[in-house]
Design a protein around this nucleic acid. Structure first.
Lengths: 110, 110
DNA sequence: ATTCTTTATCGTAATATTGCAATATTAATA
DNA sequence: TATTAATATTGCAATATTACGATAAAGAAT
């Protein structure tokens, strides 16, 4: 025991959970915010922006990449990172849907 | 080491991370979806909806509650759970903002 | 009062995450 | 080709999460 039982849930549920989990750490929220703040993709620089050691940042970037949140392309000896719009769209519309459903059936029993 | 260095990040970043983390497990996504699907708040029933043992579900509910995602009120010997609209609004607007910023400055370098 | 039902908590095992020093890799540059 | 710069990987310790059996707690029903 100890491992998440992904096979018990739908693909959609697992996908949303994966994306949400990717942003379940303040460093990764900070990375996304930084990628947004800086116009265009950024090559390098991310390590200097965060109060964490380089291997730790590299690991967080890897997790964001694995979740599909960011893309990285090699640009000389640096790597250019940017946000994957598709991923943002997916999780954005999940919460937008939840929010609108909530408003529709506001029965306020609690 | 091993613990998240929350003190290095802003309150806002930690708040978003906390909410995102709460939905970083398919069972918790399923719980939220179920609470939405069923009109009004639901008293009981959640355990039977999920393919997990009762203590596990209870733990997931606790985490959603700690993150501020759901509220629970005692209703006889059952407990009535419902979604906290404020939390949904917060994370919804975070992703909506990310999405609109992305569209604004779409420079497509990757 | 006893039993049933519902939910929470405790204890514990398995696994995952977080963080970093040390090291490797890879490409640009001198 | 050595050196430098940027990023990744390895290895490991500390901590957190996931899952569940056993048990507790508390109100409802008999």
């Amino acid at each position: 025991m100890g491992a998440t039982k992904t096979e018990y849930f739908t693909d959609k549920q697992n996908e949303i959970a994966l994306l949400a989990k990717a942003l379940g750490h303040p460093a990764r929220v900070a990375i996304i915010e930084y990628l947004i703040k800086v116009d265009s993709c950024i090559c390098g620089d991310i390590v200097n922006e965060l109060p964490l050691a380089q291997p730790t940042v590299s690991q967080h970037l890897k997790e964001l990449k694995n979740a599909g949140f960011i893309k990285g392309t090699i640009e000389g000896n640096a790597i250019c990172y940017c946000i994957d719009e598709g991923a943002v769209e997916k999780i954005k519309s999940f919460f937008a849907k939840i929010s609108s459903e909530l408003e529709k059936k506001r029965t306020d029993c609690c």
